[in-house]
Design a protein around this nucleic acid. Structure first.
Lengths: 206, 206, 206, 206
DNA sequence: CTTTAACCGAGACGGTACGTCGTGTCTTAAC
DNA sequence: GTTAAGACACGACGTACCGTCTCGGTTAAAG
């Protein structure tokens, strides 16, 4: 992760020492049941109308168990949604920076379409009033796309594809912005729109 | 309003006949008190934590009176926020299309900064799970900016400032997108960022 | 009306002078519509669930009109119910005091059976927490039965049918009490019960 | 409990198995606080004006807790009022049936006098429009008096004090009726009235 | 092989806010 | 001056969830 790519990030310290603790270990079954119940419920209701109580009931789990492992509803939803294979962001190594950016835009467009797209919009909506939730959304989902684009743009600048005086951060905003703008303003991102937008954006970078 | 500018719009009919009604007329005092109370409360709490009950109490008004005139919380907030003078969008007639777009971006950037910006973000967040609320947000706030940009871009295409093969709708998304993206991802729009972004976007249009 | 018969009564002054007043006169049509609407609504709902608002709507009348002429809901209901022919209390002149009392009991038993009986019970229920309403109930309904019984008992004492040392007031309570007790405890007064009770009560008076 | 005494009764099954339940157990402190608050509030307001909300506030308890354990306001009030020691109905074993009946009448007269009497009247009033509430009133308060009188009358018939052809049910109505009639018609039961009525009623039974 | 400590389900708890209904009062224009 | 219409401040309803708590019971490592 290079410098310009980091400005969204905050918590750099990771606290992952395993440290065997005594006592009954966390139930993986419960965890899976909770995330699965959340996903199922989200096919019928919005994030805002989803309640912890409903998740607990559907998952056959005590409310306490949910509160023990997640700080709030948004965290549970983020966990449930973004752990799905459809949301991985491993892209094939591109022939050029432009190709890489095109691939990233298309991938993102597809991930943010349909029911999943609506749910991401709702998560982002929920996060507008809760800084913690916004942080989680950024760390779990956004940062990765940001970093990828950052690397590609830097590479493009280095190999002459893009203008050398291009401000990477601004460029990323210009690429991600329109996609999320369409998402939150309720305008779907079909393939035609994606293609048209990609053309325009790549022109911008040159 | 030209064709391409209208795709966000829906309710074109206006129903403004005065039509003498029997019964006690609506109290303008109550209306003012409600909007004022809403604004005051929003300086201390988020839209999501704001409750109709609190507004009613602060305004010295029955809850019913609020529900009689607004369908939901978001409508009240939209009314309260966007009726403020700071949110008018009357721009000086520009020397060129580029100037006009620059002015619109700067105006919008300023309107979406600070406390007001956060509130708009929260409204937009609230609207993600309520199509009606989204509609209201678009009709009251977004449409106007959309239309203005549309006219400017069309004019720019006509007078040779911008590329003739530019797709107006895509162009608007590329202009508004980054601004709203920064808003909802929690990155403020200071003057430097605004200027940098404007430069990049105007280059895109040419 | 003799002395002992009056102890339930209070407002002896009647204020019935016609006194032509200027302005639009009271609408008899509205009055009739209100009472009729009340009766109709009472066939489907209880007195407690009946609302002034519903009466006004059904009668096609402003709420104000109801409030202008009746002090509270119970008054309207009392007016609506007891003005029905089924509730008159004109009894044939009896051959004996016993016959008269028997006739009064039977008449009352019949008036307090079925739907009408339930409504009277509900009125009486409503009146338990509102002294004014209780007063109205007594004056409009109860007093008349009380007076009739009083006269009959006094006559019976005079002509030797009943014990001379009988306390009239107590006797009336003993006659009316069981009838109303069955009403409010939800036990219907069929003909068999009425007959059996009448026999026992007449024995008591002798 | 003999046959004739049972006609007011319905729910004969008792469901008293302790049956270990999971989850947090009911808070006895809350229960006590609710009933105490109810009693206190009833000294200043009528049953009909008493609100669940006020009870909850005064008791420092959530409304849900009340609704969890009582189906409606009347049930709470019945519980609060009739659990008071003043409302027990344990009578000394009488020398004769007449003595027993006299004692029962006097006890009842005293219980239904003063503030407590008004509250009982209000409960009974409330119950006129709610069959469930009436059921509760009967089961909690009335049935016991009914049964006691039934036993006494049957005993009196067996030992020659009362007429053998006396219908027990009718006799009970004639005893309880006047007492409740005076209660609901707003005529207090002082000692003189009680004595006079007892004399008359005992004569009736013979 | 028992203790200990954290986990788990169930569900009661004190609260807050919901959106609705009805109260009794008021304000208007029509009659 | 009365009426129908209907807006108003207010208070309570019964419900849904919140996040916390308190039970009885489990599960596994530590003593």
């Amino acid at each position: 992760m290079n410098q310009s790519a980091r400005h969204l990030s905050e918590n750099d310290m990771e606290n992952d020492e395993p440290q065997k603790k005594s006592g009954r270990p966390r139930s993986e079954a419960s965890k899976r049941a909770i995330l699965e119940a959340t996903r199922r419920l989200l096919t019928h209701t919005s994030v805002q109308k989803l309640s912890i109580e409903a998740i607990a009931k559907k998952a056959g789990v005590g409310k306490t168990t949910i509160y023990r492992w997640w700080p709030n509803k948004t965290s549970v939803v983020v966990d449930a949604i973004f752990s799905q294979p459809a949301f991985n962001n491993i892209l094939p190594s591109p022939n050029s920076a432009s190709d890489g950016i095109r691939a990233q835009i298309e991938r993102l467009g597809r991930q943010l379409s349909g029911k999943n797209g609506r749910t991401v919009a709702e998560i982002l909506g929920e996060a507008q009033a809760e800084p913690d939730a916004l942080r989680i959304f950024i760390d779990t989902f956004l940062q990765d796309r940001y970093n990828t684009l950052s690397s590609l743009i830097e590479a493009g600048k280095r190999n002459g594809e893009f203008a050398v005086d291009l401000d990477t951060e601004t460029a990323i905003d210009v690429i991600l912005g329109p996609i999320f703008f369409r998402l939150i303003s309720g305008q779907e991102m079909d393939d035609v729109v994606t293609h048209q937008m990609t053309q325009l954006l790549l022109k911008t970078l040159r």
